[in-house]
């Protein structure tokens, strides 16, 4: 009888454990798909483009994705150029990067003083950032993904309603660039677990050059008007988000071979299709 009771107890514990485990697993999946090391999971959500096209006024749905926890550092990038000689500063093809490529690196395989190892790599072109991503088997985030992840405050996936969050952003954007960038993980971690989305450096996105479609069609003319003239407040979906305006302004001023001392990047990757979100 004692044995039976023990067995019963063990049995129910076992079943309870299985049930609990299953529950925990599914519950966890619904919120945070286990992300590969160094990446964070950003759940599906919506993103409202800054410049509304009249035909596209619906907010975009951004599928879940993994985003790198921090910007790519100088040490990370050193490993890349060690492995890929053609992306070293003395070898880089002029179509892939302008003359300022890695200009703050003393030489091909030297990013400077060791204390800069964990600072974000900047002065890299979009081509170089993509090549790095390829090498890591990943990709750059899209504008929609980047903006979706960046609109999170520390406590909320959508921090845009938080005046303090907006004020802090604007403050950072109005400080001049320091002589060298602080380390990654030196500013703030947001709701998704991503560090330094604001307050460290600008970041490349895959589709930077479609932030503003240029052409001679009438609607493009209107978009130009929105960007260049004072009427921006009409076209912008949230006219108080000056920081977003600045990012759009920057992106529309870039070309794929440009390198900028305040512009780095981080990686993204798709969530595997077998994830519970697709069930």
């Amino acid at each position: 009888m004692n044995t039976l009771l023990l067995r019963l107890l063990a049995g129910s514990l076992l079943l309870g454990g299985v049930a609990l485990g299953a529950l925990l697993l599914t519950a966890a999946s619904s919120d945070t798909e286990p992300a590969p090391p160094g990446m964070v999971y950003v759940a599906e959500g919506t993103y409202q483009p800054l410049f509304k096209n009249p035909e596209e006024s619906e907010p975009y749905t951004v599928k879940p994705f993994f985003l790198q926890e921090t910007a790519v550092t100088r040490a990370d990038f050193l490993a890349f150029v060690e492995d890929n000689p053609r992306w070293r500063k003395s070898n880089i093809a002029t179509i892939f990067a302008d003359e300022q490529y890695l200009k703050d690196w003393p030489s091909d395989l030297d990013f400077g003083p060791e204390e800069l190892a964990n600072t974000p790599v900047t002065n890299v072109s979009w081509h170089a950032a993509r090549a790095y991503a390829d090498w890591r088997g990943m990709r750059l985030p899209t504008t929609a993904e980047w903006e979706r992840a960046a609109m999170a405050s520390a406590t909320d996936a959508d921090g845009l309603g938080d005046p303090d969050f907006l004020r802090r952003l604007s403050e950072w954007y109005s400080q001049p660039a320091p002589p060298s960038w602080p380390d990654v993980r030196s500013t703030a971690q947001n709701y998704w677990g991503a560090w330094d989305m604001h307050g460290l450096v600008w970041e490349w996105v895959e589709d930077f050059n479609t932030a503003l479609v240029r052409g001679d069609s009438r609607s493009d003319g209107d978009m130009d008007r929105v960007l260049y003239c004072g009427s921006g407040s009409i076209g912008a979906s949230d006219f108080q988000d000056y920081a977003a305006f600045l990012r759009y302004g920057l992106r529309s001023g870039l070309q794929a071979d440009y390198t900028v001392s305040s512009l780095g990047f981080r990686l993204a990757m798709d969530v595997p299709t077998s994830s519970p979100d697709d069930l």
């Binding site: 079943l15 299985v18 299953a22 529950l23 599914t26 519950a27 069930l279």
Partner: peptide, 16 residues
């Protein structure tokens, strides 16, 4: 039993 539990959890999950 496990499948039932998983199914129940799945229903719960989809509800969530």
């Amino acid at each position: 039993a496990v499948l039932l539990l998983i199914a129940a959890s799945a229903i719960l999950f989809t509800r969530c």
